[in-house]
Design a protein around this nucleic acid. Structure first.
Lengths: 352, 352
DNA sequence: TTGAAAGCGCTAACAT
DNA sequence: ATGTTAGCGCTTTCAA
């Protein structure tokens, strides 16, 4: 046991990267103390904290995350498995999540399953193997094996973009169905009776399904029926949506209002109308869902339901951190969505 | 030492997650053998591989990534630090990278620095601490400390969205400057003499700077000068670009052609023209850079330079994997960009 | 082809 | 407030 602090020898150049033992030796303390300086500095006397920190800087010591994770069983890494990464609304949420995690010293790993719950399961498995501290998924419907895995591993799971206060798992989001009803009700209010729906593919996508459910339920509640062939499904793609729009307008009794599953679909439909010389909103009204940055700038600007994407991302991250660190955080967050009335909708028959 | 294989006891339920030792015990082999089955199965006899695999399935064993990483000094995790995540072009690249990495059993961690090289450095540090096997950055200009860190840690580094065959580090991309020249030359070719430029913020963004350099250099080479106040910088934002467009057209001798630093800026400018009743391309030509999916669908469709975003993402991932695994991969990949002529550009003075 | 055993670099329980 | 030390779960020599 050392009884005195000797001046340290000049910095010998290590060929390997310095470890916590090197720092301990140079700072003349134990490895435990160095570890404490890093993790619980309040337990260490200020001058020792100082000394250790300058040694760390001197040696350019970088802690080994794998070793930390192995010893502490925490990686400070969180995984988000999203339906898709490129897609303005998700990339915005991812961006906000990543920033919130970074602020709190977590790193975010991402994967995309491209609307396949099977691929989602595979990603979850791979990420659990990497030892993520928590998992974030989009939507409420997932492969049962996903839930099994997560339960067995006792990893916090958050479902985003849905709000299910009575469900087993924490959620941050809103009711996609209620949002859909809100839009449809508005269009009925301003006199529309014939509707077309352009929806995303609903298989493996409960959000898309719920939005359409909402549209249809609202119409039904107002004694309006929508024929099956006035509901078109396609990928979230401008060209496919343009096709869908043409299909809808080619029917016997063409709709005066088109409800779109998101703003990409609405944009595709709107641009196709411009191309065809169909006037919006005079000839047909179009409503979106999400309120992408583009929506407000289109000509005419798009009526849509605003989803606070950054807020959802940030709250998801914060909720997950609360789960990981066992804070008394609310497990269910209902974010507010707003109907944004702009230029693509007008009263039915108002051939202005 | 066991001399015979006894039938295994019924699966005792472990309270903790099974480890490699549990698998070894149940399969009546050593942990070394289990490890080999996982990593180098060709070194193990087929029947043992079989037996171990079924034990793994039986116990629902999931290897601990941190322990693996600590022992093998490889995390199979790669980090990409991008300027931004939401931004159609980057999210597409990220998406393609992620898919390519996933196929090869890597996970991708991402961070965004929002065009601050200082924040980039901090992210790089945090990710190195996590033990990523490689780092991907966008552009060629970075904080010297980034290069220091990466050199000391001997971590492979790839620079994407640039092509620098003579540089120290591998690159996957193209010449942003040459791309800019290409567009500018085309517009001169069709008779334009008065230009306006809407560029992204060039500080801490060598790609934006190079694009403008290219625009200006091409004009100079054709004996055309562009006044300083015809070069406007703004964030990649539709509203800011709309402002820039108004500023440019308000000058003494308004430009007949607007060169935009990317498609977001071009879209903002185009939509503002529609709003102002300025006809595109009759009154003014507009050119973009990137070829986002939206570009082809705008009315009129946007003339732009196509950047193969998915290809760049995929090739970046593959190059990085080659670097990590020491394959004889080319360290520099020059992707092809194409000038896509569409409806927003027309010969100067052609008031059709 | 397989097994024994020594780490990998750190945290945390325990001791002082 | 600080030090000692036993793991964390795996990979990888080395030996058989």
């Amino acid at each position: 046991m050392r009884s005195t602090r000797r001046p340290q020898p000049a910095l010998e150049k290590l060929s390997r990267a310095p470890t916590i033992r090197d720092v301990a030796r140079h700072a003349d303390v134990s490895v435990a103390t160095v570890s404490r300086v890093l993790n619980r500095p309040e337990l260490v006397s200020p001058d020792v904290v100082q000394r250790v920190h300058s040694t760390i800087r001197l040696l350019e010591y970088i802690p080994n995350g794998s070793a930390r994770a192995l010893a502490s069983r925490a990686t400070r890494m969180v995984a988000a498995v999203m339906p898709t990464i490129d897609g303005a609304i998700y990339s915005k949420m991812i961006s906000a999540m990543q920033q919130a995690f970074e602020r709190r010293g977590f790193v975010l790993s991402i994967a995309a399953h491209e609307y396949s719950l099977l691929r989602e399961l595979e990603s979850v498995r791979a990420l659990i193997e990497r030892g993520v501290d928590a998992i974030i998924l989009v939507g409420k419907i997932h492969d049962p094996a996903v839930y099994d895995l997560i339960r067995r591993k006792r990893i916090p799971l958050l479902l985003m973009c849905v709000y299910e206060p009575d469900g087993e798992w924490p959620t941050v989001g809103w009711s996609n169905r209620a949002g859909g009803m809100r839009i449809a009700n508005y269009l009925v209010d301003i006199g529309h009776r014939n509707f077309g729906i352009i929806s995303g593919i609903r298989a493996d996508n409960d959000r898309a399904a719920d939005r359409v459910d909402g549209f249809v339920a609202a119409l039904k509640s107002r004694d309006l029926d929508i024929p099956e062939d006035c509901i078109v499904q396609c990928r979230y793609d401008l060209a496919e949506s343009a096709n869908a729009l043409r299909h809808l307008l080619a029917g016997e009794q063409p709709p005066t209002a088109i409800l779109c599953g998101n703003d990409v679909l609405a944009t595709g439909a709107l641009l196709e109308c411009l191309r065809l010389g169909i006037r919006v909103p005079q000839d047909v009204s179009i409503a979106g869902y999400d309120d992408l940055p583009l929506a407000a700038h289109l000509v005419p600007p798009l009526t849509t339901l605003r989803i606070p994407a950054e807020q959802i991302g940030r709250l998801s991250a914060e909720t997950v951190i609360g789960l990981i660190e066992n804070h008394p955080t609310p497990h269910h967050v209902n974010v507010e969505v707003d109907l944004i009335l702009r230029g693509t909708t007008a009263p039915a028959g108002a051939r202005v």
